[in-house]
Design a protein around this nucleic acid. Structure first.
Lengths: 345, 345
DNA sequence: ATGAAAGCGCTAACAA
DNA sequence: TTGTTAGCGCTTTCAT
């Protein structure tokens, strides 16, 4: 392994001069600098980041802790984080906690031991106390998707605002008998969406049109399995708490000859890449997933540079995507690509 | 930040004794050790990995370079890698190259600068020469999915063997007019699958039954768009180079009233989580994706511990998954979960 | 413009 | 069992 000492020897200067030249700092004559740079290239020198950060106390790594990298929501977010970080000279240490509090805790531990420059956490289980270990080391933390506490900077999609758009639209479409199919355990995002439903309907004096709120689940299978119960309420519209479950319902409907949107309208939430591909493209709320990652990284890098900044909260605005499952006309594929592009804006 | 010096001072011993105690090395009296351990806990001491690895020359990080974290194939692989690495005390630096040779190259550069303990690379563009920068630093490299060269250890799914199973089955099903729909640019995995097709058909004296090999693409959209051309050949069976494209074809078929498998049989490759969920579950070849990641990490850690080991090649055996798109009966969902479980075996 | 020296936090010889 | 010393590769004062 070639170090600055080797270069120094080869150029008959001292390591400090080499360091200055390599880091493009002032105080090196053009002649010597060029000589050093050439020698470095020739010898295949590569800076030892860890050694450098030991003295500068600045790490080139940030940590990313997520519940499940296989879930497209988090995968897209991770894409945004890694892209922004890489573009700004940071490397991303990925910790996939698998929705396990213990693995999450040990991820925090390891990131702390690595003295990362900052951490982005998407979690439903992490507490402000668990994140305390970072504060001890002056490592800034940004919560993504789920605000983890009043003292922690967070970047989230505004579930309430997004859901409001959807329910306004649903009412405008003339829905009379709505079923709200939600998850088994109520998370922050679910309850925000439910709150939006109640508020919008109430504002229009249409509260009676919500004929049932059912705890169905959140997976494809649960959507499929729950459809029978839902249909027993004879709804003319169904809101599924997320797209995955809506897709399960769609699958059930198709197999049982139930026309969507003709017999029953269907809407989801998230706008997965998949949701525009199925035979009846889903009307849903687009969550800016890549953008969430980008923004979280951006805010984190800012906090890394300005250690004393006050905790802030950034809300990304989701937007309604009208597709066939609610009766709108829709150009196949065009929408998907366009949505994807919009996420980068 | 509390260092071993602080603990040493508090316990009235020297840093080396603290180091010994903390690392559970011999040569510390039980009494002193306990005192040190307690003090460390009390002060909230956390080992500075980078400083330690500077002297031990052992990094706690491995690098993972993949083309696209959003693609479920790589996401599952990443899950396997991170899980195995974490279980063995390694942290994973994720580099998402986005199928861009430049970003890939700069990922290599950064991993090298981080002096990672080893690297797992899933790539179609990386060359043995590009990976040379790791050899200079004695950093072992394991190629995943795509063998990157004769001197590089690789862990791959055996595309040829998997495809053979599929084509044997296809022939046994009595297919008479087969269309092979492949990608636009021929990668290693595609050509292996094509080779299997030719070999199997030839072995049965059925080469004439392959009526066309068409370069259609590899995405959902390309599958959808290419279906018209494919159908113009009047096939009774179609092999799509991957599931995503097969799903696009399925979507086209459903919209145009073409019954699958009744009018045309359809088979894919990969076995995405999705493939068992669609209305006509796909017959396909299951690639062990999580297992690929686990195995790659396992082999890498072995090479990290045994630096002089010879390059090896490990082939994972994919297996045929018979579902409705080729005419078999199939229990909805049961299969998907079971397949997922099998991946962990 | 360049060099000398100190030190980041830790480990590992060797000495006591 | 414990301490002393040196040094990993790098940066950064402070001299010169």
């Amino acid at each position: 392994m070639v170090s600055i000492k080797d270069i120094a020897r080869a150029c008959a200067v001292t390591p400090s001069t080499v360091s200055r030249a390599l880091n493009r700092r002032a105080g090196v004559s053009d002649k010597v600098r060029e000589q050093i740079l050439n020698k470095a290239r020739e010898l295949g020198y590569r800076r030892h980041e860890a050694a450098a950060s030991l003295v500068t106390a600045q790490s080139p790594h940030i940590g990313l802790v997520i519940p499940d990298i296989v879930n497209p929501y988090y995968a897209l977010m991770a894409k945004g984080v890694t892209a922004y970080a890489a573009a700004h000279g940071f490397t991303t240490i990925l910790c996939n906690a698998d929705r396990d509090a213990n693995r999450e805790r040990s991820a925090f531990e390891r990131l702390c031991a690595a003295r990362v420059a900052g951490v982005i956490v998407a979690s439903v289980t992490a507490t402000e106390k668990m994140l305390g270990i970072f504060r001890d080391y002056g490592i800034p933390v940004v919560a993504a998707e789920n605000p983890l506490g009043p003292d922690i900077t967070a970047v989230c999609n505004d579930n309430y605002a997004g859901a409001c758009q959807l329910f306004e639209h649903l009412m405008a479409q003339g829905c009379e008998r709505l079923v709200f199919a939600t998850s088994l355990h109520s998370a922050f995002s679910s309850s925000e969406r439910e709150r939006a439903c109640h508020d919008v309907l109430k504002a229009h004096g249409m509260s009676h049109k919500l004929i049932a709120t059912l705890k169905i689940g959140s997976t494809f299978e649960e959507g499929y399995a729950g459809m029978e119960e839902i249909l027993s309420y004879k709804p003319d519209a169904i809101f599924a708490i997320n797209d995955l479950m809506a897709l399960g319902m769609l699958s059930y409907a198709q197999e049982h000859g139930i026309a969507i949107p003709k017999s029953v309208k269907l809407a989801g939430f998230d706008d997965l890449p998949l949701s525009s591909m199925v035979s009846v493209p889903l009307t849903t709320v687009h969550q800016r997933k890549i953008q969430l990652g980008i923004k979280a990284a951006e805010v984190l890098l800012h906090e890394i540079e300005h250690p004393q900044s006050e905790p802030s909260r950034i809300m990304l605005l989701p937007y309604l995507v009208k597709r066939a499952s609610l009766g709108e006309s829709y150009t196949r594929f065009g929408g998907a690509k366009q949505d994807f592009k919009r996420d980068f804006e």
